[in-house]
Amino acid sequence: MAVTTGKSFAGRFGVHIAVLIFVAIWTVPTLGILVSSLRDKDQIIASGWWNSFASSSQTEAGRLPPASAQVEKDGKFVLEGNIFGDGAARDISAFGVKSAAPTQYPAGTTADLGDGVTLQLNADGGFVMTSPKAFEGERGQRVYYASSAPPKFTTDNYKTVLLSEGIGRSFMNSLTVTIPATVIPILIAAFAAYALAWMRFPGRALLIAVIIGLLVVPLQMSLIPLLKLYNGAGSFFGVPSKTYLGIWLAHTGFGLPFAIYLLRSYIAGLPREIMESARIDGASDFEIFVKIVLPLSFPVLASFAIFQFLWVWNDLLVAMVFLGTEGDQIVLTAKLNALLGSRGGDWEILTTSAFVTIIVPLIVFFSLQRYFVRGLLAGSVKGG
């Protein structure tokens, strides 16, 4: 009697839970970046993105009108108005006139500031300040207050980033760098992987060992020697140093070891019978490669394309070394880095810039994701 074996319910349930956990680990930070990129600057500073849909509380500082705005009423000099000059809807809970005690007085109460000067600040921002003597000075009284504001979302952050000078040009520069730097190593690695998997020639095993060894070479260690080599060759052939050709070759060199290793593992696992049948029919190695190996290897090619595209698109170091930071060649990551540097630590710019940079990689990933898992399992399972 045949016995049907399979995974238990607990095993399947555990796998599903693990998948959900990993999905959450990757999705939640991305969601946080998206939400933060749409929030108001002051609310980003005051609370985390998970509080985006609740009122945020924060302590702020404002300044009352100067002495020139005072009026005389009933023998006293009065300054009145609303501390929210922008008209924003906020609710004040407490206020003070010293930074050490910003919430010393509850909203709506009258604070005695000494020498007969009083200040009343209401919950809606309305204030009345009175004094028995005329106010003096060109700067008004500084006031601190704790306020709560309803959730506020805006697209101004995206306008600031996307409409900044040079962003469109840097976006096209990134595409100009990334697309060839993804296609070139795939073309070279596919030929090399087929040769190392199915062709016999002297030194093949040693070449495979060298490729595996190159996988652990740090980019930072080889970057400057590679730049000197390229500049030396460029001087000999009369090629300028800061060109797209240099960065294409650099990314090709850094990506080839992993590409050859990944593609060879997959191609070596293809059924031998197909290759032998094609050879019996008189097909050459090139015909076998083009008509049989490449169509069957599309999943692993797509997987490597995702990895290489993500690496090159998000790269900053190689682009600055081989391409420079000139306005007509600067890539998107370098441009956004310069934008952040010129604006200090503006959180709304940081989160918006981060989300802008991941839009294109997300499109590429979801376009090729159905081949991703099959490519990651390259060569791990062989038919009997």
Results as ranks from 00 to 15, higher is better:
Phe286Glu: 05
Pro102Gly: 02
Ala67Leu: 03
Leu229His: 05
Trp313Ala: 05
Ser353Leu: 04
Val239Gly: 01
Ile188Gln: 05
Gly87Lys: 01
Ile21Leu: 13
Arg272Cys: 04
Ser93Tyr: 01
Leu214Gly: 09
Val161Gly: 02
Met129Cys: 09
Gln220Lys: 14
Ser342Phe: 08
Gly87Asp: 00
Lys73Leu: 12
Asp112Gly: 03
Leu362His: 08
Phe366Gln: 02
Thr154Ile: 02
Gly140Asp: 02
Tyr194Ala: 00
Leu226Met: 13
Leu262Gln: 12
Pro185Met: 01
Ser36Asn: 10
Leu162His: 03
Arg374Ala: 10
Ile363Phe: 10
Val15Lys: 15
Gln58Glu: 11
Ala319Glu: 12
Asn82Trp: 01
Trp50Glu: 11
Leu214Lys: 07
Ala334Leu: 12
Ile92Asp: 02
Ala278Met: 03
Ile17Thr: 13
Gln120Glu: 10
Ala283Pro: 08
Phe298His: 15
Leu377Gly: 15
Trp248Glu: 04
Thr110Met: 08
Phe22Tyr: 08
Leu64Val: 00
Ser131Arg: 08
Leu339Glu: 00
Gly238Phe: 05
Tyr144Ala: 01
Asp285Gln: 12
Ile212Pro: 05
Thr178Pro: 12
Gly11Val: 11
Val321Ile: 08
Phe365Gly: 07
Phe171Gln: 05
Ala250Lys: 09
Gly126Ile: 09
Gly96Ser: 00
Ala378Pro: 14
Trp347Cys: 11
Trp198Met: 06
Thr30Asn: 14
Asp156Lys: 15
Phe237Thr: 10
Leu332Val: 00
Ser52Gly: 02
Pro271Gln: 05
Ser367Gln: 11
Val15Glu: 15
Leu263Met: 10
Asp91Trp: 13
Leu20His: 12
Glu72Arg: 13
Arg204Asp: 02
Gly11Cys: 11
Ile208Ser: 15
Leu270Val: 01
Gly168Ile: 00
Val356Lys: 07
Val216Ala: 07
Tyr144Asp: 04
Thr30Arg: 15
Ser56Ala: 09
Gly116Asp: 01
Pro240Gln: 01
Thr110Pro: 09
Phe153Trp: 01
Ala94Cys: 08
Thr178Asp: 08
Pro225Tyr: 03
Gly327Leu: 09
Ser342Pro: 14
Ser241Pro: 14
Thr5Arg: 14
Gln220His: 15
